Computed example of a mutant assay.
Amino acid sequence: MNNKNNEYFGRYISILYRQSSVFYSKEFHKFGIGAGQYMFMIHLYKNDGISQEKLSELINIDKGTTAKAIKKLEELGYVERNKDISDKRVNKIYLTEKALEIKDEFLASLTKWEDILTSNLSDEEILYGLKILNKLTKNVSKN
């Protein structure tokens, strides 16, 4: 495609990423959770007890980064790492009572960002945008 308007997906994706990082940093600061940990919390709320390796795959982040983020969340008291009973090489990650206590407020912040992001879009535009973003994600996942 010859792009004469100098409009690029990457530019807008970058802006959205930076703005979401600023938003989430402010929202989750009160919990001590930083930009490097909130994505793990989101997926742990949906998949409590998941293995550390599966969590890495789910988020599409390398194992080292996952280990660091989980260690930080463990230090903050939000998760516990336990060895799998059937395979001692596997760490399962479980949310603590402290994590469950902030769950509603934490998830409300995610909804707040979605509301900001989609505030002037119709339902059709939202669905179309999600379809496009899904395709873009699949394109880069192939590389």
Rank of each mutant, 00 (worst) to 15 (best):
M1Q: 02
N2K: 08
N2D: 12
N6G: 01
N6W: 01
E7T: 02
E7I: 12
Y8T: 03
F9E: 15
F9L: 08
Y12V: 01
I13A: 10
I13G: 14
L16W: 15
L16E: 12
Q19T: 15
Y24G: 08
F31K: 01
F31Y: 09
I33Q: 03
I33Y: 01
Q37L: 03
Y38W: 15
F40I: 13
M41D: 03
I42C: 06
L44V: 06
K46G: 02
G49K: 06
S51I: 03
K54D: 13
L58D: 11
I61Y: 01
D62M: 04
K63F: 10
K63S: 12
G64H: 09
A67T: 13
A69F: 00
A69E: 06
E75Q: 04
L76C: 08
G77N: 03
I85Q: 08
I85E: 13
S86G: 05
K88S: 07
V90N: 00
V90R: 00
I93H: 05
Y94R: 09
L95E: 08
L95S: 14
T96V: 00
E97C: 08
A99W: 06
I102A: 10
I102H: 07
I102T: 07
I102E: 09
K103Y: 10
E105D: 08
F106H: 14
L107I: 15
K112A: 09
I116T: 06
I116Y: 11
T118M: 10
S119D: 12
L121F: 05
S122Y: 15
D123C: 12
D123F: 11
E124W: 08
K131Q: 05
I132N: 07
I132R: 14
L136N: 11
N139A: 08
V140G: 02
